[in-house]
Amino acid sequence: MVNMPEEKDIEFADAELTNLLASIPKVSAPNDFEFRVSARIASTRTAARPRGLFGALRIAVPAAALLAVTATALMLNPYWSETATVSEPTEIAVAKKPVEAPAAVPGREIEMPPTTFASNGPSIQPERRMTADESLTSVSRGPSNDEAGTSFVESGTQGEKIYPRGINPNVDSRPVSPNETRTGISIRDILGQLGVSFSPTVNGLRVDSVSTNSVAARSGLITGDVIESLNGQRVSAETVLFGTFAAKRILVRRDGKAVDISLGR
């Protein structure tokens, strides 16, 4: 059995040391000790107190303001806008079905690739909207198979026409008003691009001149012809076409006879 030393024995044996230790000076707390303790208590109490609605607003309002300023700055920054546009995947809308297939003339085949025009509406009035089974899909941009190089739209593989971004003949995003003037391509512009200048007559459009080496000249259109229809649709000086279509055939009256001219040569 181990005997525990008695306190008196311990103190007596260590008296010299304990006196030495007791003799060293003692430090005191600073004079502002109580004040600093009170300040700490107040600070801790404030930090622990639930903030409530006001506390949440103190954070939410500056955060919302900062967010708004940042968003505005980004939207107004042209460099950012361009970068964002470029960084988007290169995709273009494709209509699975051709928008309008002009009625083919029986017995005649299209020998040359058509000359195609596009506007912001369907090619042949009345305008039509895309049906449910003609949903838009996205495909990667492929090489154009429009060998004539006269098309305003790009053609994709497997007979699908690929339209540049922003031109979708199936969808008119604007509300349609009966009195609304819609932007289309006038017959004068179309024939002008084919190389034809004309004057309107009662029976049709009389060809005043045909530009040398133009599509119309190469196709056989001559001065004096009276244009009666384009792709089978009767035309007048006021005709305006919407959407995309291919100028394939033109019917003229020449010396009293109807002549069907295939365009694109």
């Binding site: 003692k26 430090v27 005191s28 707390a29 000790f33 109580e34 600093r36 700490r40």
Partner: peptide, 23 residues
């Protein structure tokens, strides 16, 4: 305050730290 500060001072041998921990 002073007994505690002195105790912590002898423990840590650092007066400022002792005052801080006493508070």
């Amino acid at each position: 305050k002073s007994p505690l500060t002195n105790y912590l001072y002898r423990f840590l041998n650092d007066y400022e730290e002792a005052v801080d921990l006493a508070q």
